[in-house]
Simulated scan of single mutants.
Amino acid sequence: MKGIVRLAGRDLKGSRRVQAALTSLKGVGASMAKAVVRATGLEGTEKIGSLPDETIKELDDVIHNPASHDIPPWMLNRRKDIETGEDRHLLGGDIEIAERADIGREKHVRSRRGIRHERGLPVRGQRTRSTGRKGMTVGVERKKLKMQKEKEE
């Protein structure tokens, strides 16, 4: 049994169950891990360290190309990619890169979402009257500080 298994550019503990170990990969949640395990024909309760190298390579292939292994497109995390138009599944740092590019595109187009991102305001319609004040100076506090400075002088 291996102590550490290398899969999708990450080191996974060999003592963990296959399904649980897959969820520690960025971009693979519980349902995706279950689908990957089913696609490879494994038991989800097996320890990942006890799997042979061929099975680990097969797991890696299914994780990198889920659509070609009969995993439904609605489970992929990047459907109808704006650049390619394809359904893709991103892993690890690719998710962060794609997210940063999406936000940059929104800012460049000057959409409402992009402008909210630029200003550091909530993007998804949350209220701002009483929440979201962390890091910003509130007007009442400014007056108190101003009055304290005048008293000190």
Rank of each mutant, 00 (worst) to 15 (best):
P66S: 01
P52S: 00
D87S: 04
R38L: 07
L91W: 09
N77R: 00
S68K: 14
V62A: 01
I56P: 04
G85Y: 06
H69I: 09
E43D: 15
P73Y: 14
R88F: 10
K80Y: 05
V36I: 15
D87Y: 06
K57S: 15
I95G: 05
E83P: 05
G41E: 04
A67Q: 13
S50I: 09
L51A: 06
A39I: 06
R88A: 10
R78C: 10
D60A: 12
N65I: 06
L76I: 08
N65K: 00
I56W: 03
D70E: 09
W74L: 12
D94N: 07
H64Y: 11
G92M: 03
E46I: 10
G85L: 01
D70K: 11
D87K: 07
D94M: 08
I82V: 15
L42M: 02
T45G: 13
R88G: 07
H69T: 09
V36C: 07
I71V: 08
P52I: 01
N65Q: 07
H64M: 11
G93I: 09
A67W: 11
I71G: 05
E46L: 15
D70M: 11
I48G: 02
E46F: 13
H64P: 07
E46V: 13
V36Y: 10
P72I: 01
W74T: 12
N77Y: 02
G41I: 09
V37T: 12
D70F: 11
G85V: 08
I82L: 14
T84S: 10
K80M: 11
A67P: 05
P72V: 04
W74I: 08
V36T: 04
D53P: 03
V62W: 02
L51P: 03
I63K: 06
I48S: 04
P72K: 09
V62S: 03
V37M: 01
P66K: 00
E86H: 08
T45Y: 08
R79W: 05
I82K: 14
D87R: 02
D70H: 13
V37K: 08
E46K: 15
N77I: 08
R88I: 14
E83W: 09
E43Y: 06
I48V: 05
E43P: 01
K47Y: 10
E54D: 14
G93T: 14
H64D: 07
K80T: 10
P72R: 11
E43H: 11
P52C: 09
E46G: 12
P52R: 03
M75K: 12
H64K: 14
H69D: 08
S50D: 15
N65C: 04
K80E: 12
H89N: 00
L51K: 00
H69G: 11
M75R: 14
L51S: 07
E86Q: 14
V62I: 05
R38A: 11
G44E: 04
W74K: 13
I63T: 03
I82M: 14
P72S: 08
V62T: 09
E86I: 02
K47L: 11
I82Y: 15
G85M: 07
D70T: 01
D94R: 11
I95R: 06
S68V: 12
T45Q: 14
S50W: 11
E46T: 09
I95L: 12
M75P: 08
